[in-house]
Simulated assay, not measured.
Amino acid sequence: MGKMKAAVLHEAGQPLKISEIDIPKPGPGEVLIKMHASPINPSDLAFMGGGYGIQKKYPVVPGFEGSGTVVEAGKGFLPKLWNGKKVSCAASPKYNGCWAEYMVTSANMCVPVSKKINMEQASMMFVNPMTALAFFDVLKKLSNSKKEKRGIINTAAASALGRMIIKLGKKYNIPVVSVVRRQQQVEILKAEGAEFVVNSSDADFESQLKEIAHKLNTNVIFDAVGGSLVQKLLDAAPRGAHLFIYGRLDPDICEILPGNLIFSGNHIHGFWLAEYLKNKNFFHSLKTTRKIQSLIGNELSTQVNKTFPMEKISEAIEIYKNNMSSGKVLIRF
């Protein structure tokens, strides 16, 4: 058994250490991937802090998505089919993740990459693009007996995901109200073509948001922030709003007035991509990733801020944490 370099987390909240560990062997239904690149996502940061829905035994290699080449296949039709192919991949919930020279994962969690897509973009095909498409799927499936046109409010909108939601809203003719926290972000998004952007740091933020939310009937909210912003979002939204919380960028407690549930007909949900995908079969996921590949040159493209070798992963994480709206930070292997 050979050795490989990996970024290893020994305890929640501790710095990563570059270590030499054994190259894993794929079992039935699994593949071994020689990793090319992997992004740093908010979900990775939450996992390293011990606050994510997936828990693994320490020491562990983080990294939820990436790209690479399948170099060894376990038993089964699909592993043999992917063998030798360049793939976009997601980490198994049972094993080490993507931040290593090699990774074993289920063949079901790999998708072959079109020749039109470079391996950097391929490394970011799962988390954000699938989440963006899932949001519009959720919107479509929510009850709408009056057949009213309705829109979306999305927070942390200067992120890579937020930008995808803006572009998909335009494609599907669904109004998107983007909430950011700095004036510079307002200007960036408007320069990129966003029509409705509000700044949560403005003194009149709540009145601005309420006016535009009622005008556009944006009664479906996707919130990545949490904290005190949640109540403000509910106060601004039309009656019967659906609020989906999918992140916790604000570590403060989220408090909601009972009246928002009792008298306003509002609904509060949690959204977790892993749970959403559990209800989808492999063929649905394959169809979705093909759709992503067709849109990756435009609506679902991701801006890359910087790329680092694995040996500088700690520096990469700090740069990403302090500049999330500047684009993704990639790790190359």
Rank of each mutant, 00 (worst) to 15 (best):
138 V>Q: 10
48 M>T: 07
324 M>G: 08
5 K>E: 04
235 D>K: 13
297 G>P: 07
7 A>P: 02
170 K>S: 08
149 K>N: 09
161 L>I: 11
201 S>V: 08
28 P>F: 10
261 L>M: 15
295 L>A: 01
130 M>G: 04
20 E>N: 14
300 L>Y: 00
144 N>Q: 11
326 S>D: 13
278 K>N: 14
248 R>G: 01
289 T>S: 09
47 F>M: 01
190 K>N: 03
330 L>H: 07
252 D>F: 03
1 M>D: 08
203 A>W: 11
172 Y>Q: 14
14 Q>C: 10
282 F>D: 10
183 Q>R: 11
312 K>T: 03
197 V>C: 09
237 A>V: 12
54 I>K: 12
139 L>H: 10
9 L>G: 04
146 K>R: 13
34 K>N: 01
183 Q>D: 01
50 G>Q: 07
180 V>F: 02
202 D>I: 05
300 L>W: 01
151 G>A: 02
173 N>F: 11
325 S>F: 04
156 A>T: 01
66 G>L: 07
272 W>M: 10
96 N>V: 01
62 P>C: 10
165 I>C: 10
158 A>N: 00
221 I>H: 13
330 L>D: 04
157 A>I: 02
301 S>D: 08
234 L>M: 13
131 T>Q: 00
85 K>R: 15
163 R>Q: 14
205 F>C: 01
246 Y>N: 06
28 P>V: 14
227 G>M: 10
206 E>N: 10
242 H>N: 15
194 A>G: 08
148 E>P: 14
152 I>P: 05
142 L>C: 12
43 S>M: 07
320 Y>E: 14
323 N>P: 12
293 Q>M: 07
60 V>R: 02
257 L>G: 12
178 S>N: 05
38 S>C: 06
284 H>G: 06
66 G>E: 10
308 F>K: 03
207 S>P: 10
122 A>E: 06
38 S>E: 05
300 L>G: 00
93 P>R: 04
202 D>W: 10
311 E>Y: 03
170 K>F: 06
20 E>V: 09
31 V>G: 00
118 N>Q: 09
209 L>M: 06
99 W>S: 04
292 I>V: 08
156 A>D: 00
30 E>V: 00
139 L>T: 11
179 V>S: 00
181 R>E: 02
292 I>D: 08
245 I>K: 11
76 G>Y: 12
11 E>I: 12
137 D>P: 07
171 K>G: 06
316 A>K: 09
133 L>I: 08
230 V>Y: 09
215 K>L: 13
146 K>I: 01
219 N>R: 13
40 I>S: 04
132 A>L: 11
98 C>E: 06
228 S>N: 14
12 A>N: 12
115 K>T: 03
196 F>M: 05
272 W>I: 12
59 P>R: 06
164 M>A: 14
112 P>E: 11
250 D>V: 01
224 A>L: 15
160 A>H: 08
18 I>P: 11
39 P>A: 06
147 K>D: 14
90 A>C: 13
332 R>C: 04
26 P>D: 07
279 N>Y: 09
173 N>W: 13
62 P>A: 07
321 K>P: 06
136 F>L: 02
212 I>A: 02
311 E>T: 06
331 I>A: 02
71 V>R: 04
44 D>C: 01
77 F>I: 15
159 S>A: 06
122 A>W: 04
43 S>E: 07
222 F>I: 15
111 V>F: 14
67 S>Q: 13
181 R>V: 00
